[in-house]
Write a protein that binds this DNA or RNA. Structure first.
Lengths: 94, 94
DNA sequence: TTAACATTTAACTTAATCGTTAAATATAAC
DNA sequence: GTTATATTTAACGATTAAGTTAAATGTTAA
């Protein structure tokens, strides 16, 4: 169920861009929203999906909620792909 | 556009399972269909999406169409994830 | 305790996705 | 050439996804 959640979360370009933004450090929901041309409500839903996939973590500080990247769950995708590529690389050698 | 296509293709469990099946070698559309409890038409559409994402290649041989894995496009995802994880790993060290 | 700000949740609309059945296409076999 | 087999494409219905606006929640500050 976890790999499914992760890949689903990554299949949307806005959500991927949010992750890219968070590479530079934690940002509040409002700061994230500022980077896109959709409403805060829409971004909030994207953030919630990313959180459910455990790709981000959130901390409230006063009236702000800060989001930060948690890329460790991507390890599972790396393993899955490595497995798949392994089989393929072998085939390409023939 | 390519990363988007690839991740979209990978976001469906049946399509991922098709790729897993093809790890073991080429299979005809019918053989692939046999592994699932959906119709051949549904599998055909999944195969077409995987082909558009260049994750598989097809060759007709007589009345069969054989599909084989092309995992090389997954490299792009690996790079994207590595980039993301790199930023995150650094943060975790602090 | 009211007003303002930051964010989420709810209700709704539209578009995309996935499945089905039926028809079309391509090849092989009789 | 007609029939059978393998696969795809078309047309349709159901479900999910993504966006919007409006209302709700949580926090700070007057």
């Amino acid at each position: 169920m976890s790999l499914q959640n992760t890949l689903k979360a990554l299949s949307d370009p806005i959500r991927r861009e949010i992750l890219n933004l968070l590479k530079g450090g934690r940002l509040s929901a409002g700061e994230i929203t500022g980077h896109f041309s959709v409403t805060g409500a829409a971004i909030s839903r994207h953030l919630s999906l990313l959180r459910e996939a455990d790709l981000i973590r959130d901390t409230r500080e006063g009236k702000f909620i800060f989001y930060e990247l948690n890329a460790s769950v991507l390890e599972e995708i790396m393993l899955w792909i490595t497995d798949l590529k392994g089989a393929n690389d072998h085939a390409e050698e023939e």
